[in-house]
Design a protein around this nucleic acid. Structure first.
Length: 202
DNA sequence: CGTCCGATGAACT
DNA sequence: GTTCATCGGACGT
């Protein structure tokens, strides 16, 4: 079980990293309570040329300034006024690439996740979809712009040796970006085939 | 099964 | 005022 080092996030190939993060473990510690899950679905956002990204055209606002931090930081923002969406910033400082984590296969702290999700019984909706997984892991705006590669961080990404490359990873267009013109056609979404926690299906 | 829509806030026209 | 990287409940087939 190894914490991904800062260097891991500095690649300028955000599409490769989106695929490579499949199988890694996202771990959240909130008030001393640990919850975690294996990443089974991601999407790359390759600004400045990507119209689907908040940082399209290097747009720089109070919200998007996080994109311009060095790779290895988190980017958490409020979507549709309700859902906190968790992203990983990649590449060197000043290059606004990001990866949205869209689904997890739950591992630790399932009881806590059930409580946060107001669910009685475990089913795949617990961490299926970017808003749902953030709620399950207790992620909100306080977790924005933190360093994911430090041992004392509330959010960390770990590699336990799970060989995701030996499994079938599907590559498709992204979800919910129809208005992004040609950028919507890019095959920037990755997911583990046959995993029940992948979004967009039952 | 499917489609529709409200919730709710940040950023933009 | 409108749009938006979403979700879940309501209702029709």
């Amino acid at each position: 079980m190894k914490l991904l080092p800062k260097e891991y996030y500095l690649s300028d190939d955000v599409v490769f990293l989106a695929k490579d993060l499949i199988g890694k473990i996202l771990l959240s510690t909130q008030n001393g309570i640990v919850t975690s899950g294996r990443i089974v679905e991601t999407e790359a956002y390759k600004a400045p040329e990507d119209k689907a990204s908040h940082a399209f055209g290097n747009r720089y606002t109070e919200r998007t300034k996080t994109f311009f931090l060095e790779g290895g930081h988190s980017y958490v923002y409020l979507c549709y006024g309700i859902h906190n969406l968790f992203n990983v910033i990649t590449a060197d400082q000043g290059i606004p690439h990001a990866i949205l984590i869209r689904a997890l296969h739950p591992l630790d702290g399932i009881e806590t996740m059930l409580n946060r999700r107001s669910m009685q019984r475990l089913d795949s909706r617990i961490t299926k979809g970017p808003g749902s997984l953030s709620q399950a892991l207790g992620i909100d705006k306080r977790d924005n712009a933190i360093k994911l590669y430090q041992r004392n961080s509330n959010i960390q990404i770990l590699d336990d040796g799970y060989a995701s490359n030996d499994r079938l990873i599907i590559n498709t267009p992204r979800i919910g970006v129809e208005s992004a013109g040609d950028s919507a056609k890019n095959l920037y979404r990755f997911y583990l085939k046959a995993d029940p926690y992948v979004s967009g299906k039952k």
